[in-house]
Amino acid sequence: MYAQLVETGTKKLKTLEEMGPQERAFQEKVNDEIKIEPKNWMPEAYRKTLIRQISQHAHSEVVGMLPEGNWLTRAPSLKRKLQLMAKIQDEAGHGLYLYSAMETLGADRDEEIQKLHDGKAKYSSIFNYPTLNWADIGTIGWLVDGAAIVNQVPLQRTSYGPYSRAMIRVCKEESFHQRQGYQILLTLMREGTEEQKAMVQDSINRFWWPALMMFGPSDDNSPNSAQSMAWKIKRHSNDELRQRFIDQTVPQLELLGCTAPDPDLKWNEETGHYDFGEIDWQEFFDVVQGNGPCNRERIDARRRAIDEGAWVREAAVAHAEKQRQRRQAA
């Protein structure tokens, strides 16, 4: 998802009996759904895993501004421009809420962002795909934010207090994002010209599989999941969330009058779920390792913004220092 592959540093779960008294008390609190707060004792691996997960999540929000920003200057009406700008701004805000939660774990925001710029930190694979037509803005809202919501709603109950509170805020604000996206697509499909309808189908064809990949590798290929679930910083398995997303999305796809680029997608009466085709995991791992269509562009854009702004941030600090000295002298 927004944090697709989070290394926990532990491949084998400890039982309560194997834990020392502090860790055991910690795990029992987690089991009892009592939130862990910044100054509480926590296993070092839990803290590090959370920093990785929350920073990946935050980076994803910030990098996620870029594919949408690509169409902000070309949004086709004042209404769409306002909606898109508000949505992108929310994403910057969500990045900030998450970085703020991450900093309560003793991590430094600038250091974590530097890791992103050095290509050492991950962010959601989805944002390495290009936005090539206006309908992509609708599709991102519908599929990408839709997938994000499926993942984030359970994270509101995650065991770490500041992360949980950030997710509650994010979920509350994001409720308009998916609707905004779907409404763009519905408008184009119902009232648009043939050219506009073609944009929508083209967009779904390109984003369908990458959106399914957002939930991360399938469970049998997800070695860190067990520990993350025990710590309750992850609450459902990747495959479970992916299935939930598909089940809720296919009827919306049909309502649009569009198709998915998956010949195996069909309702299964027996399981009560949709069956779907095999995901191209090679593509997923390629993109995660930096070889997606836009990885370089996205990182370059973020690095440029922060590097080129260095003189501005320095000037602000210099001015603040001058002000402080003047106050002292007065």
Binding site: L96, Y97, S100, A166, R313, A316, V317, A320
Partner: peptide
């Protein structure tokens, strides 16, 4: 409600308002 980074107090107030 959370935190912000800022160079000075005035900026902190405004950044908090924006966020």
């Amino acid at each position: 409600v959370g935190s912000v980074h800022a160079a000075d107090r005035q900026m902190a107030l405004e950044n908090a308002r924006e966020l």
